[in-house]
Nucleic acid binder design. Structure first.
Length: 267
DNA sequence: ATAATAACCTGAGGGC
DNA sequence: TGCCCTCAGGTTATTA
């Protein structure tokens, strides 16, 4: 492989000796852990993270480099793997040993769609914590893959106020949260992701999941269930959207019955 | 130990 | 037209 690094300053610096590390090795398999892509080579692994604006594409030799194309890896089949990332929140890391033990991956929580992520696990992890549930859902050491949009949507579907202290959540709350997180992510994947501004999927098309959002980005718009204007607050430097009527603090009440029906978008 | 906050980076969009 | 400001996102480093 021939490797060109045009811009090494990503989330973390791209290894300066990347060309030497990659040249002559074969990609044996490609995996994913959380939001990291793992390229397992005959010796060592490449860890890729696309941040919020990153993308990978395969191009032919001679394809002009675009602004924000940061790395080009020439493959033995004649194609080039290009890493493009305008906002540079992504990363390209090298790992000699077991990539799952890399410092960035070793402490990640369970995959949301696997059985290990269940109500008992989530409740056990949360019941001793006192901070608000919504930012906690986005913490990768609790569960990976739940970004801002899905945290907001899962709490709405579960009828839980995003400000609720984790310690106030019951096992039943955890049950609903886990179920809705799994359902949301599953359906979002099927529909090709959620389009936010300039996101496009590998086919260059926008995701279609946005059409089904109940609260995210809907400040002051009517709740699809009760028409109450959707509220907006900031938690941990992130926008939170919720319905003040449908989403109650778990200390005070359970989810309204109408949230269980299929009259609203569930992804 | 937990919890809260700042930082990284660029482009889009709004206001003037 | 163009400048300035704010915001979006995932994750970690730093501070209380």
């Amino acid at each position: 492989m021939r490797v060109e690094v045009y811009q090494p300053r990503l989330r973390w610096d791209v290894p300066h000796d990347l060309p030497a590390l990659l040249t002559g090795h074969v990609v044996e398999r490609i995996e994913r852990r959380g939001k990291y892509i793992l390229l397992r080579l005959t010796r060592g692994s490449v860890l890729l993270h696309l941040g919020m604006s990153g993308s990978l594409r395969l191009v032919e030799t001679g394809t002009p480099r675009l602004t924000h194309d940061h790395v080009d890896i020439a493959l033995s089949n004649g194609l080039h793997l290009r890493l493009h990332d305008p906002r540079r929140f992504g990363a390209l890391l090298w790992c000699d040993g077991d990539p799952l033990q890399h410092p960035r991956l070793a402490k990640l929580g369970p995959e949301p769609l696997e059985d290990a992520f269940d109500a008992a696990y989530l409740h056990q992890r949360l019941h001793t914590r006192h901070s608000a549930i919504k930012p906690m859902l986005m913490q990768a050491d609790i569960v990976v893959g739940v970004g801002n949009i899905y945290a907001n949507e899962a709490l709405f579907l579960s009828g839980i106020d995003p400000r609720t202290p984790c310690s106030a959540l019951t096992l039943q709350d955890a049950q609903r949260l886990v179920g809705h997180i799994k359902q949301l992510l599953q359906r979002a994947i099927e529909q090709g992701g959620t389009t936010l501004r300039d996101f496009v999927n590998p086919h260059g098309k926008p995701g279609y999941f946005q059409q089904t959002l109940n609260v995210y980005g809907r400040r002051d718009e009517p709740c699809r269930v009760c028409t109450t204007p959707i509220a907006h607050i900031v938690q941990a430097q992130r926008s939170t959207f919720y319905c003040p009527h449908c989403q109650k603090n778990a200390l005070l009440s359970a989810a309204p019955e109408n949230l269980s029906k299929n009259s609203i978008n569930q992804g």
